[in-house]
Structures are given as structure tokens and as C-alpha cells.
Computed example of a mutant assay.
Amino acid sequence: MAENNVSGMETSAIAVLKRAVELDQSSRYQESLVCYQEGISLLMDALKAVKDDSKRDYYRKKIKAYMDRAEQIKALVNQMKEDGKYHEQIKISEDATGYSYAVLFKPYISSSLSEVWVEDPYIRHTHQLYNFLRFCETLLKADCALKSVHLVTSQDEANGDQQSGALSALKDSLSGHGVTLDLQFSTTIHDREIRFDNGWIIKIGRGLDYFKKPQSRFSIGWSDYDFRPCHETTVDIFHTKHTKTQRDS
């Protein structure tokens, strides 16, 4: 039974680390760093469980190699952030899956994150309001110190009461979790942008509304966004040391 557990941990570690290397080679460094860290953790669990000395030696060498690469990436990312040159681009293809908000935003959510700005003209219709709700839930579940979310969107002229009612209910619900929702409507907003006060800026071509509609409420993907097919879109990620200052100026 113990050997099966070790084998399972090793298989999981290999899959995660393979993904880390792929992301690393595609210059998606922040995402690869998350995968390296997860893979290293799995290998360390396997090291603790295995008894064979040669296998333990093998795990130690692999762990050291991946830790060295993770440290190199950390230094590279920190230098690019310092120089204001950090830019990653993710291209989500038509019908791709595995791009839930948790997956997309996790690499950029840190423990210091406390304030988020969302500029998206399409938080109006029911499914778009649910998208924004799911985004807020993703932030609440993350390891961060979220205190406030600022939303700038356009007003739904056809169903304004529904939009206002939904956002008001969400504001009350977030308040119960110690988070303030600041809402503003704009008639001129066009660009879509999400800013974190830890310096990360995420621009998604389609905003938060990049998922296709499930066939029904009983289809796989209705609840878990990782299973939802996506529309083709591009995600650009930047970092600036002065996110909050720039946003408020």
C-alpha cells in the first residue's frame, strides 16, 4: 500500500513538473513558478515516504535541480518587475478548457493582496454577473488579505433593476466577509482590465466573459469553470511597482 502511495505521489509530481517545464520554456515564468513549487512539494512528500536509499537519493537530486531552477525564475521575475519589463501573454484557444478564474489568477494572488480594481463594461447580463460573483469567490478562497473590490462597468439599460439588485446583493454578501465592494457605472468604459494592489495587471481581451454557455444547468462545467469551453481570447499580464498610485492618480 505504501509503495502505491509513493507511486501516486511520484506520478502527480511528474505531471505537475512537466507542466512547469513547458510553461518555463514558453516564458510564462510566474505560472511555471507555481507549478515548480507544487511539484517540489509532491516530490518532498514522496521522499518522506520512500524507504529505498537509491530512490531517496534520486528524489533529493531532482528536488535540488527543480529548486535551483525555481530560485532562478524568482530572481528573473523580480528583476523584470524591478525594471518594469515584465510581460506574459496567454493565448486561450477556441473551446479550450482548464482556464477557470482560480487557474488564471492564482499565480498573481499573493498574501499581501488587499485591493482589486475591475474595469469591465460587460458585467450586466445574468451570466456576466455570475462570472463576477465567481471571480469574487476566487479571491475570497485565495491566500490573501482582501479588503476591497472596485468595479467599474456599464449600466444595463434594458434590465437595470436586475443588474443593480444583483450587485447590491453581492455587496451585502461581501460585506459579511469583511470585503467592501465599490461600484461605479460609466457610459464611456471600453477597455477591460484587472489590477491587483500587489502590482499585477491582467488584461483579458474578452474581460471576465470568456466562457461559453453550458448546454444546461446539468451539464459538466456548469459549476466547475475548469470544465467550461472558452471563447478564443488573449490574456496579457504586466507588473508595475506603482499599481495603486497609478490607478488613483
Results as ranks from 00 to 15, higher is better:
A2H: 13
A2V: 13
V6P: 09
M9G: 01
E10V: 15
E10A: 11
S12K: 13
A13Q: 08
I14Y: 08
L17R: 02
R19L: 13
R19T: 14
V21M: 08
V21S: 08
V21R: 07
V21H: 02
E22W: 02
Q25D: 14
S27T: 10
Y29I: 05
Q30E: 15
E31M: 12
S32D: 06
V34Q: 08
G39I: 08
L43T: 03
M44Y: 07
D45I: 00
A46F: 04
L47N: 07
K48W: 02
A49S: 10
S54G: 00
K55N: 05
Y58L: 11
R60F: 03
K62Y: 03
K64C: 01
A65L: 10
Y66G: 01
D68R: 09
R69F: 01
A70I: 06
E71R: 13
I73A: 05
K81T: 03
K81C: 13
K81M: 12
E82W: 12
D83G: 00
D83N: 10
Y86M: 06
Q89L: 08
S93Q: 10
A96T: 04
T97K: 15
T97D: 01
G98H: 09
Y101A: 02
Y101F: 15
V103H: 07
F105V: 00
Y108E: 03
I109T: 04
I109Q: 01
S112H: 04
S114T: 10
W117C: 04
V118N: 07
V118T: 01
D120Q: 08
Y122W: 11
T126S: 14
H127T: 14
Q128R: 12
N131H: 15
N131W: 04
L133Q: 15
C136R: 03
C136G: 03
C136Q: 09
C136T: 11
E137V: 09
T138C: 13
L139C: 09
A142Q: 05
D143K: 10
C144R: 07
K147P: 00
K147I: 01
K147N: 07
S148M: 13
V152G: 00
S164E: 14
S173A: 15
L174H: 04
G176I: 03
T180N: 14
D182W: 01
F185C: 01
T187S: 15
E193K: 12
F196N: 04
D197M: 01
G199L: 04
W200R: 00
W200Y: 15
R206H: 09
F211K: 05
K212N: 06
P214A: 05
P214Y: 04
Q215T: 12
Q215V: 11
R217E: 12
F218I: 09
F218H: 13
I220F: 08
G221H: 05
D224S: 11
D224V: 13
D224G: 02
F227Y: 14
R228Y: 02
H231T: 04
T233H: 05
T234L: 11
T240G: 05
T240H: 05
K241S: 14
T243Q: 12
Q246F: 09
D248C: 00
D248G: 00
